[in-house]
């Protein structure tokens, strides 16, 4: 059976208990009734699509403006394209995006090397600040790593013998 929209205003009692003062979203939302005329607004001029923009399948197309930073590319881009075939309700949207983010990190390192730039992980992680403000912690961490490494090396060399 098909659903048909009824003339709701003829339903007995329709709207008789409506209280326009009962607006729990005020003052965050200044209710004007625009929700019910939502297609009547004039959209702003549309930004030209200069790079590939993926959009949620929960909307018909792009918004009037959007960011053009880091368009999808490579393997991570292919995964992102897959993710955007699924709605924001689905894990198959978000999990692939997280996977793509991690792959994108490796792609970034490869890109850096291709451009002749060897990433300085210590500098990028702000280790200088650690050394300046948390020298004791850095030394403790270094000692712990050295101790674990020494134990592992000892165990491995014992096994070989």
């Amino acid at each position: 059976m098909e659903n048909e929209r009824t003339d709701y205003k003829n339903i007995p009692g329709w709207g008789m208990d409506a209280d326009p003062e009962n607006e729990p979203t005020y003052p965050m939302k200044n209710y004007t009734g625009d929700d019910h005329q939502r297609l009547n607004y004039t959209r702003p001029p549309l930004q030209p699509e200069s790079v590939e923009i993926l959009h949620s399948n929960e909307r018909p197309g792009l918004t009037a403006v959007f960011g053009t930073s880091s368009p999808p590319s490579g393997l991570s881009g292919a995964i992102r394209r897959y993710a955007f075939q699924h709605s924001e309700d689905r894990y198959r949207h978000w999990i692939p995006l997280i996977l793509a983010d991690r792959i994108n990190v490796i792609e970034g390192i490869v890109d850096d090397i291709k451009k002749g730039h060897i990433p300085n992980f210590f500098a990028e992680r702000g280790c200088a600040a650690d050394w300046k403000y948390n020298r004791k912690g850095v030394l403790q961490k270094a000692l712990a790593i050295a101790a674990i490494t020494a134990i592992v090396i000892t165990l491995v060399s014992d096994k070989k013998k």
Partner: peptide, 26 residues
Amino acid sequence: IACGVCPFCKQGLYGNCHESNPMATA
């Protein structure tokens, strides 16, 4: 980022603009 003309912006919900993020509706 808010357009100022969508139904949400018109009602003061500038943090929920319908014309500034194509990648997620949430």
